[in-house]
Each structure stands twice: as C-alpha cells, then as structure tokens.
C-alpha cells in the first residue's frame, strides 16, 4: 500500500512540475503574441528578439472566431493580440484589453492618423488598439476564363459561373456578400433582411464549388476555379503567382476591415508589449511585414516606398471613392449573432 502511495505521489509531482515550468517561463523576459496565420514575417520576430533580448512566444489562429475562442479558454496567457475590428470591439466591451498610451511609442508618427480614425468606430478614444493592416474583401477572377468584365457580386448569384466559384467559409463574410448584393447594410440587425440574404445563399449553394478560407487563392492559382471571394492581400498575391488573376472590388461596395494589435488585461509586462508594438511600426520591420503579407499598410514609411505596381493595385491601394463605398463590421447584438449562427448552420446543412 505504501509503495503505491509513493508511486502516485511521485507521478503527481512529475505532472505538476511539468505544468509549473510551463507557468514559470511566462514570467521571465518574454512576451506571448497571438496573431492570424501567415500574418507576420518570422524575420521581424527574430530582429525583435536579437535587439531587445525579449523572447517571443508566437501563436496563431485562422479566423477571428477561433482566435477569440482560444483566447477565452484561458489556456495560454497572451500579452498582445491582433484581430479584426468587430472582434476587437467585443474584446474591448468585455474588458479584455487594457488602456495604453500610444503616444509613448517612438514610432507613433509613422502611423497615419486616418487609420487611427478608422478605428474610432469601435475604439472612440484610440486608447486600446494600434492599426496593423487593413483591406477589403472582393472577387479574385481568372481573366482568361470569365466572359467580360467582373465588377459586381451578381456574377456569384446569376448562375453564369455555376460550379466555378468559391465562397468564403466564414459566417460574416458569406452573409456580407449576399447583403451587399441585396443592397443592405452588412451590419443589419433586421431579421427580414437576413432571411432574404439566407434565401439568396441557399439558392446559390448548388452553384458553389466549395466554401474555403485560406485555400481560395490556391485553388484559383491551380486553375481549379474561375472566381473566388478573397481578402485583398491574397488577391494581390495571386496576381503575383499567376498572371491573369485579377482582384476587383464589386461596385455594390464591400467590407472594409482593419486588423489591430491590442494589449490584453492579463499582460504583466506592459513595457515589453509596447516595445513589441513599437517594433511593428518601425520603418524596417513594417516594410518586411508588408512585403510578406501584402495587405494595405497604415504605416507612412511603407506607403511612401510602395512600387508603382503596388500603388496601382486596388487590392493594396484602393481609391478614396472605393473606401467611402465600404462598410466596417460592427459587433452585432447577441440575438442577431444567434440568428446568424442558426442561419449559417442551416445553410451549411442544406
């Protein structure tokens, strides 16, 4: 009996010591960063680690919803995180982000003021988040396979390209497309409008080749599809990978999104976190990230040094008129979110 007790105690000790070293490490000179996948050049992390001696623990999630779930589960304590405006709004409302003073950043002047203004819709006093990248959602198409110009969401609904196009497999983006096609706001809380969008999407489903997230671009590059709904940066990248792939922003307007970094309420070492944010908007790091991600950058040094090709691209450098025609997502009230979740499940089960 005694022996067994010893074995059990030993094992409990072993297990808890494993858990303990996991915790201890977090307190040392390190920082835990949470970001979307493929959204930061590893080179920047290396530069930061080498120059400051602060170790970066880097974690990724594919969508805002998954990022939120992983964050909320509390398994890992994150210091800084990057996500999209409506999710940031939710985190701010839930008190998950802490107030910081961005004027203390050495490179604060490298961030264009209009991008802080964009954030005012969910962070009115600009005290929670720092812009990182922004962009639009549009249609990527294969110039050789489409008949005529593509400049409207209607091509995804009129049956012309049945079986040849890919929709976004993420709830809000899917409904955004239908709502814009119908001429409604992408932030509508009107049940009738949402149900109308649902009908449109259900009718569209047999024509959809597939619902994907990150692979839409790859499928078009591989020539498996003619059109796909993508984020602007992917649209630009696809054009680089294969000539003849063009990104367009439909004339009905679309979603303008902005991804920002914020400091979490659990962050113990705010100095380290701020140092990290400062690096992101430092000229050289901002440039490395821009070349890696290819979304529109809010950093002035990057905007000034863009190539002519980048400046001419509506994916990286959309015109003011296009921007004015776009809407930023706001966080929907719980009952609308519940309705959307139910509709989305129904659509996917169809």
């Amino acid at each position: 009996m005694k022996k067994k007790f010893v074995v059990v105690v030993f094992m409990v000790l072993l297990m808890s010591s494993c858990l303990m070293c996991g915790c201890n490490k977090a307190d040392e000179n390190s920082i835990t960063v949470f970001n979307y996948g493929m959204y930061m050049d590893p080179e920047v992390l290396k530069i930061f680690e080498e120059e400051t001696g602060i170790k970066v623990k880097y974690e990724e999630a594919p969508t805002p919803e998954e990022l939120y779930t992983k964050y909320k589960s509390g398994a890992v304590k994150y210091d800084v995180l990057c996500t999209s405006e409506y999710m940031l709004q939710r985190l701010i409302n839930e008190g998950e982000l802490q107030e910081v003073d961005f004027s203390t950043l050495k490179n604060r002047d490298n961030i264009g003021d209009e991008y802080f203004d964009m954030c005012k819709s969910f962070d009115p006093d600009n005290k929670y988040v720092m812009p990182y990248f922004w962009g639009t959602v549009g249609i990527l198409y294969d110039k050789e396979k489409v008949h005529g110009d593509v400049d409207t969401w209607d091509v995804l609904f009129n049956g012309e390209y049945a079986g040849e196009f890919i929709m976004q497999n993420s709830m809000r983006d899917a409904y955004m497309v239908a709502l814009k096609q119908l001429g409604y706001s992408i932030n509508t809380t009107n049940e009738a409008e949402l149900r109308e969008a649902q009908e449109l999407l259900i009718d569209q489903k047999p024509d959809v080749q597939s619902y994907l997230v990150d692979e839409v671009k790859d499928e078009l590059v591989a020539g498996n599809a003619t059109l796909g709904v993508v984020y602007s940066g992917e649209g630009y990248y696809a054009g680089e990978e294969r000539e003849g792939l063009v990104y367009c922003i439909p004339r009905e307007g679309t979603n303008l999104w902005i991804d920002c970094f914020g400091v979490t309420k659990d962050c113990k070492n705010v100095d380290n976190a701020m140092k990290f944010l400062d690096y992101l908007c430092r000229e050289d790091c901002a440039k490395i990230n821009f070349d890696y991600v290819k979304y529109a950058s809010p950093y002035l040094s990057v905007i000034e040094t863009m190539t002519d090709k980048e400046k001419a691209s509506s994916a990286i450098n959309p015109s003011k008129e296009i921007i004015n025609n776009c809407e930023i997502y706001v966080q929907l009230p719980q009952e609308t979110t519940d309705l959307l979740n139910a509709l989305w499940k129904e659509l996917k089960a169809e």
Binding site: E66, V208, S210, Y211, K345, K348, A349
Partner: peptide, 22 residues
C-alpha cells in the same frame, strides 16, 4: 474532401465549439 458543402454531425459539433462558442 467536400469543400465545406456537407455537414456531418461532427462538423456541427466542431462549429459549436470553435465558431459559435456554444
């Protein structure tokens, strides 16, 4: 394999945990 067009019961459970957070 089905490009997100077919929902098995496993997909629904996954969605409840990961996207909907229910």
């Amino acid at each position: 394999m089905a490009g997100g067009k077919i929902q098995l019961i496993g997909n629904i459970i996954e969605q409840e945990f990961i996207t909907t957070m229910d």
